[in-house]
Structures are given as C-alpha cells and as structure tokens.
C-alpha cells in the first residue's frame, strides 16, 4: 500500500497531520502498538523538520506486510553537515521556532532512536531526502 502526503513549509498549524494519518492507517492494520509509537515519533519529527526548515515537501509511505518505508523529501536549504545536524542539541532553527518549543536539536536524534533504519541525503540549496524504515516483526 502506498500513500503520499504533502507537507507545507512554515505552516505549523498543520504540523503533524501527515503523521496522524499514517498512525490511523497503521492502527487499522493492527500493527504492534509499540512499533506504531516508534514510527509516529520518527515521522512527526521528520514532518516538523520540513515545516520548520523547508519550503515544501512530501511524505511517501509504503506499507508492506513486514515493514513500513517512509521517504520524506523536501525542497529547501538542505543540510551542509549531516554529522553535525545529527548531534543532540545542534539546531539551526529560528528564534521564533525555538520559542514555540521546537528547535531543541532533538529531532534527528529522536528519529534515529525510533527507527530501525534511517538514511539521510541532502544537497545544499536543493533539499533533503530522509528514509525511515521500521519492521513489524
């Protein structure tokens, strides 16, 4: 099963709506609640990253019998140094975004902790592609 959700850059009022849709689908499929929880954390963080940093993006979800593969692609500033971005506490979020309680530099580490596989590639001034894979077994 494949699903695609659009993510609007800068629109915080909608942040989390794509993750919420995926959660509903996984619940309907009776996926193990522990795996749903992990997946929801990683997808929410990925979605917020697009909202906070990019102009626009998509969440492409592919659900198989044994796993969920999610690709989040955005058009945006990209990440110059992925290793640095992966460090807990490192963030380039704006002061306004930080005031809302985002931008604590915990997003990518949260994704890593809550996914079985995480692959990230990025081109500066083009965009970022993030792949999250979680196994149901």
């Amino acid at each position: 099963m494949e699903f695609k959700f659009a993510i609007e850059g800068g629109n915080f009022s909608k942040a989390g709506s794509a993750s919420s849709e995926v959660k509903k689908i996984l619940k309907q499929l009776n996926v193990n609640p522990k795996i749903i929880k992990r997946t929801v954390v990683s997808l929410y963080e990925a979605e917020v990253n697009v909202v906070a940093h990019a102009f626009e993006g998509n969440m492409n979800v592919d659900i198989d019998t044994d796993k969920i593969v999610v690709k989040i692609e955005d058009k945006g500033p990209g990440i110059p140094d992925i290793d640095q971005a992966m460090q807990e506490g490192y963030s380039t979020a704006s002061p306004q975004v930080r005031e809302m309680g985002f931008g604590a530099g915990m997003g990518l580490p949260n994704i890593k902790r809550n996914s079985d596989q995480m692959n990230i590639t990025s081109k500066v001034d083009v965009g970022t592609e993030l792949e999250i894979i979680n196994y149901f077994g």
Binding site: V41, E45, V48, M100, G101, F102, A104, M106, N110, N114
Partner: peptide, 9 residues
C-alpha cells in the same frame, strides 16, 4: 517539559 521534541521522545 516545554520542548516539544523532548515530550515527543
């Protein structure tokens, strides 16, 4: 907590 990612995690 007031950090959303902290609560999420």
């Amino acid at each position: 907590s007031d950090l959303l990612s902290d609560v999420m995690g």
